[in-house]
C-alpha cells in the first residue's frame, strides 16, 4: 500500500470520525449538562431537593454507564433510524455515541459542580438570588474549568467509542483500522491510523488543558507545580534586578 493510497482512505475517514465525535459531543453537552446539574440540585440539601427523582436519574445514569457500547449501538438501531433516517454511516453512529456518552458526561458534570463551595451559594442566597441565579451565576461559571476538562475527557472517550462504530457500518478511522489492518493484514496502515488517533487525542487534550489554564483564576497549583512556579517567578525577579533599565 502506497502513502498516496493510504491518504486517499485516511482523510475521508478522519472527517467521518471528527464529524460523528463532533456531533455527539455537542448533543452530549446539551443533554448531559442539565442532567448532571439535576443530579446535584435534586440531591438531599439541594435547591430542588427531590430524593425520588434523584434516585431515578441516578439509576438511569448507572444503567447507561454500565451498558457496553456495542450492545447499546445494536439495541438503539430502531431509535437511530427514527431519529436520523438511517442506521448506517457516521450520522447514524453519532446517535448511540451521544446516548452512550450522556451518562458518562453527566457524572463528570455532577462531580465538577459539587466541587463549588457551598458558601458561594449562601452568599448568592443572601443577596436575594434564587435557584436559577445560583446555577447561572455561580455553579456553572465557578465550575467552568472543571467542566471544560470534563468535555475534553468525554471527547477522548467518544473517539475511543467511535472506533467500534465500524462494526455496524459507522465509518471513521476505527473502521479503517479494523478493515485494513486487522482483516487484510495491512499492519503498517493500521499503525499509521493508530498514530493519527494518538495525535488527535493528544491535540484535544492539549487544547483542553490550555483552555482550563486560561479559565482558572484561583491558585490551584499544588506540590511540584507550585514549587516550579515559585522558582520561576524568583528567576524572573532576579533577572529584572540585573537588567539595566
Amino acid at each position: 500500500m502506497t502513502w498516496d493510497q493510504m491518504q486517499e482512505l485516511m482523510w475521508p475517514a478522519t472527517a467521518e470520525t471528527l464529524q460523528m465525535v463532533g456531533v455527539a459531543t455537542v448533543f452530549t453537552v446539551l443533554l448531559g449538562l442539565p442532567l448532571g446539574l439535576l443530579l446535584v440540585l435534586t440531591d438531599r440539601g439541594g435547591a430542588l431537593q427531590n430524593v425520588l427523582l434523584n434516585r431515578v436519574i441516578g439509576v438511569i445514569v448507572n444503567v447507561g454507564r454500565s451498558l457496553p457500547f456495542i450492545i447499546l449501538m445494536v439495541a438503539l438501531q430502531t431509535f437511530t433510524r427514527t431519529v436520523v433516517g438511517t442506521s448506517i454511516g457516521w450520522q447514524a453512529a453519532s446517535v448511540p455515541l451521544t446516548i452512550g456518552a450522556i451518562p458518562f458526561f453527566a457524572r463528570l458534570v455532577e462531580t465538577s459542580v459539587r466541587e463549588v463551595d457551598g458558601g458561594l451559594l449562601e452568599a448568592v442566597h443572601s443577596m436575594g438570588g434564587g435557584t436559577w441565579t445560583t446555577v447561572r451565576k455561580v455553579l456553572l461559571p465557578e465550575s467552568l474549568p472543571a467542566l471544560v476538562s470534563s468535555v475534553t475527557t468525554t471527547i477522548i472517550a467518544l473517539i475511543g467509542f467511535s472506533a467500534m462504530a465500524g462494526t455496524v457500518g459507522g465509518g471513521g478511522l476505527g473502521t479503517l483500522a479494523v478493515q485494513y489492518g486487522y482483516q487484510r493484514f495491512e499492519t503498517t496502515f493500521m499503525w499509521v491510523i493508530v498514530a493519527e488517533l494518538v495525535v488527535i487525542v493528544m491535540a484535544i487534550q492539549l487544547i483542553g488543558d490550555i483552555l482550563v489554564r486560561r479559565l482558572t483564576h484561583r491558585d490551584q497549583a499544588t506540590g511540584v507545580t507550585r514549587l516550579l512556579r515559585s522558582r520561576r517567578d524568583q528567576t524572573v525577579e532576579d533577572e529584572e534586578l540585573v537588567l539595566p533599565h
Binding site: 463551595d117 458558601g119 458561594l120 449562601e122 452568599a123 442566597h125 443572601s126 443577596m127 436575594g128 438570588g129 434564587g130 451565576k137 455561580v138 461559571p141 465557578e142 467552568l144 479559565l215 483564576h217 484561583r218
Partner: peptide
C-alpha cells in the same frame, strides 16, 4: 423573601467571593 434579602447585606468569614469573577 428574596426581595427582603436584597436589603440585608451579609459578609462572611471566608469571604465567599467568586473566583471566576
Amino acid at each position: 423573601l428574596r426581595e427582603a434579602r436584597r436589603r440585608i447585606g451579609m459578609v462572611f468569614q471566608h469571604f465567599n467571593l467568586l473566583a471566576s469573577r
